[in-house]
Design a protein around this nucleic acid. Sequence first.
DNA 1: TCCGGTGGAGAACGATCGTTCTCCACCCCT
DNA 2: AGGGGTGGAGAACGATCGTTCTCCACCGGA
Lengths: 182, 182
Amino acid sequence: MDSEMARARVLDAAEELFYGRGVQAVGMDEIRSASGVSLKRVYQLFPAKTDLVEAYLLRRDARWRADLARFVADGDSSRERILRVYDWLERWFGEPDFRGCAFVNSYGEMGAVSEAVARAARTHKELFQRYVAGLVADAGQPDRLAAPLALLAEGAITTAAISGSPEPARHAREAAARLLEA
Amino acid sequence: MDSEMARARVLDAAEELFYGRGVQAVGMDEIRSASGVSLKRVYQLFPAKTDLVEAYLLRRDARWRADLARFVADGDSSRERILRVYDWLERWFGEPDFRGCAFVNSYGEMGAVSEAVARAARTHKELFQRYVAGLVADAGQPDRLAAPLALLAEGAITTAAISGSPEPARHAREAAARLLEA
DNA sequence: TCCGGTGGAGAACGATCGTTCTCCACCCCT
DNA sequence: AGGGGTGGAGAACGATCGTTCTCCACCGGA
């Protein structure tokens, strides 16, 4: 198994465990056993746990936004594409291992104590807001709609996570549609 | 110092430390030194750390909602009172030690591993949503507005926490006003 | 004045965890 | 065939932390 492969396996295991149970609740030894990569190799690839946490967040950010953008791009009109953001959220909320936003969770857990985690969360949210702003601009809608549309999505993620129901995505979608009408 | 007083001091210290740095980042010894209550007494009052965490969340929920309701009640009209929710959030976001929603943070940190924390977060959010629904009903607005108004508030809290800016409260307020117009 | 019990200070214990080290098997190069 | 270096398994180390225990000072009642 080459180094590329080992790295991917470690990151896969880290993502599943960190996201599913929280960063501090998962020990490095558990990542070793879940990934099948020896502890020595894990520490060669990621010299400290914080490096692994950072890599996990960066990779997840890229994949999350790419998945969202791919789904949204299938919309027929620019207005429809905005609303498809909430459809995608609803699908996400329905996944059995959905547990809210990895960045919000990590920020709540370590944001006060780890500047790297805080920065990763800030960057992720900023890129999401910029993406929404792009959709709004493409639809010829006024710029001021971007922030509330992002807030609705953000609120839906948190509410769905804590309540355990995907319903907030539909409420957010309806409200977004109403904001787009005016 | 009687038992009531000791309990209050411990909870005050726990709230400041747990909210400020996260539950797992704070040791019981630090709560002892911050509260001035001996470790033995702390454990008499709260037999385990989880009991202290639960008491912290319960007390914070009660006070948070009471503070909000007191501020909102000063609004002149029922419509104005709904919008004052976002004004109160903006004041909260501006406080120097604001670090997001204690329940969202605790849920992200321990929700997957502690059913008590998950339940406290669910209850808190449910009571907040019910409170918003009451304001909507008082204003004679349709019930379906309650959920999106709560989502805007929820999104504003998370976004303000991570971005470090109180601005999301104003965006949420403007969007809420627009939803109330239709 | 003695005494039992309450409470404080802090050491001690046991577990967990991040990180490193030891020891050994394997394998490519000459 | 021999040797050096890579990698695996897992023990070991040092720190932290939740929780308990020890020892002692104090204090109200006989």
